[in-house]
Nucleic acid binder design. Structure first.
Length: 480
RNA sequence: GGCGGCAUAGCCAAGUGGUAAGGCAAGGGUCUGCAAAACCCUCAUCCCCCAGUUCGAAUCUGGGUGCCGCCUCCA
């Protein structure tokens, strides 16, 4: 089986073949750092983290680059509002980004280039465009001349003629006057008073959004990357413009495969979409969510839907994902449990049908909902054993168990599903007291004093300890 | 108006020509003093509608309806 990826450029599933055998250059458009990350960001980066992990598991040497846009009107507005500088706002939310993504078990990028640290490359890029006749200055701004690039629209399937119909009153008037054509976009923006600015051949100013990515990508990964990815909203105009800029200069394809993930929309009580656009003032931050849900529940939710389909986010959906995650996490924690009680798992992972099913699903354009099936089958199968172990029984067929458990851990690692460390250390401290309580309750039960027995059970439950009665064996317990 | 996508059970969601994966929820059962946990069982004669192609379609074609995204900053 070979990996197949849906390429936005061709609108078809294509066999994946990197430019250089064994190596994958992967560029993902990062966030503009002017606020905390919301659920939608989480989806995008969970998706590409999973793609990256899978590529690695296939043996590819993956270089993963993700930028930060740290120059932007929205950041400036935020700085103004908070009475601080653009640099401070940017750094604040970059730090927050790292924190949130770490909780989702998203691997750090190999590098996080920032626009403000790439100015020389950007101005250099613009000069090359100018030299090639693709860019022209106008009152301190520099614009890209869209009509000079014949392939413009090839990614998004838009033609300039179609766009013309949509050209509306929404265009900024000052810009319109400077542009030769309404579809031209800014490569460089002349400095405005009291705003951060960098020197350039066209005077002080700052780069436009699209050129940042073209320059950062080229500086880190060269002229052509294997995979260029981002949210579906970036398809047009952002990625279209990146292609126009980069390919005009290099004459080579910017990316071999373009991947775009569907949106995660929060649904309101009537089930209507409330897009998480911050300009509409509606978004749910990750840190808010993580106060009440484990981050892995969100990761599970994202994995449960194919990455190109939209997700209508509701709390019910999250609860459903959480239910799966809770069971799965218990089983994943088993290794630690066994170690804690002196029965460490011996045995290796073996290649077996579970892995084949998983790989077939992932090979088909990263079909994670399908790939989750063997994972769920495995943990269901292992789950009953988990309870035997936690209830103090000796594990039967430990080698077979170990092999399956390691397979599960391996698959979960590719999906980025990571269990919290189980609370086992406190057991030694609690154990004697709990045994006393269990004995007292057993006495009550023997006396058919159900009220007292239930009182003790309830009391322990308040401490998070659940009792499990058995028919012929003493009562055992576990954490809630 | 232009471009694109989607429509599968109460909910979520795979499946793209051979007779409907999986999950959540729900119901029933075993067990229990009662619970909890665990385990077992059940849960779409049918895939938005109509027409067509085919021995055969949820899957292909045409038409229709509904929802969504992009066309403006957005993951």
């Amino acid at each position: 089986m070979a990996l197949i990826i849906y390429n936005t450029l061709s609108r078809k599933k294509e066999q994946f073949e990197p430019l250089e055998p064994g190596k994958v250059k992967f560029y993902v458009c990062g966030v503009t750092v002017y606020d905390f990350n919301h659920l939608g960001h989480a989806r995008t980066y969970i998706v590409y983290d999973t793609v990256r992990r899978y590529l690695k598991s296939c043996g590819y040497d993956v270089t993963y680059i993700q930028n930060f846009t740290d120059i932007d009107d929205k950041i400036l507005n935020r700085a103004k509002r908070d009475g601080t500088s653009m640099a401070v706002v940017a750094q604040t939310y970059i730090d927050a980004y790292y924190e949130d993504m770490a909780k989702l078990n998203i691997l750090p990028a190999d590098e996080y280039p920032r626009a403000t640290e790439t100015i020389p490359e950007i101005t250099d890029f613009i000069q090359q465009l100018e030299a090639g006749g693709y860019a022209y200055p106008a009152n301190g701004d520099v614009y890209y001349s869209v009509r000079r690039f014949p392939d413009y629209g090839k990614l998004s399937g838009k033609r300039l003629a179609d766009l013309e119909a949509g050209a509306s009153e929404r265009v900024n008037e000052t810009e319109l006057n400077r542009k030769k054509d309404p579809f031209d976009f800014a490569l460089w923006k002349a400095a405005k008073p009291e705003e951060p600015a960098w020197d350039s051949p066209w005077g002080a100013g700052r780069p436009g959004w699209h050129i940042e990515c073209s320059a950062m990508l080229r500086s880190r990964l060269g002229e052509t990357v294997d995979i260029h990815a981002g949210g579906e909203d970036l398809q047009f105009p952002h990625h279209e413009n990146e292609i126009a800029q980069s390919e005009a200069v290099t004459g080579k394809p910017l990316a071999r495969y373009w991947m775009h993930n569907g949106f995660l929309n929060v649904l309101d009580k009537e089930g209507k979409v409330e897009k998480m656009s911050k300009s509409l003032g509606n978004f749910t931050t990750l840190r808010e969510l993580f106060k009440t849900y484990p981050p892995m529940a969100l990761r599970m939710l994202v994995l449960k839907t194919h990455y190109r389909n939209p997700i209508g986010f509701t709390l019910d959906l999250l609860d459903s994902a959480l239910a799966i995650w809770r069971d799965l996490e218990e089983v994943l924690q088993l290794g630690s449990w066994l170690e804690a009680i002196g029965q460490p798992l011996e045995g290796q992972m073996l290649f077996d049908p579970w892995i084949a099913d998983f790989q077939n699903a992932m090979d088909d354009d990263f079909n994670t909902p399908e790939a989750l099936v063997p994972v769920i089958m495995l943990y269901k199968q292992l789950g009953s054993r988990y309870h035997e172990v936690v209830h103090g029984k000796t594990l039967a067929e430990p080698e077979q168990f170990a092999h399956e458990w390691r397979t599960l851990v391996y698959l979960c690692d590719i999906l980025g599903l990571k269990a919290e460390a189980p609370i086992v250390r406190e057991v030694a401290l609690l154990e004697p007291d709990i045994q006393v309580q269990i004995a007292l309750r057993q006495q009550a039960r023997d006396n058919r004093d159900w009220a007292e027995a239930d009182r003790i059970r309830r009391q322990l439950l308040e401490k998070g300890i659940v009792l499990i009665d058995h028919k012929h064996e003493p009562t055992t317990w576990r954490f809630e």
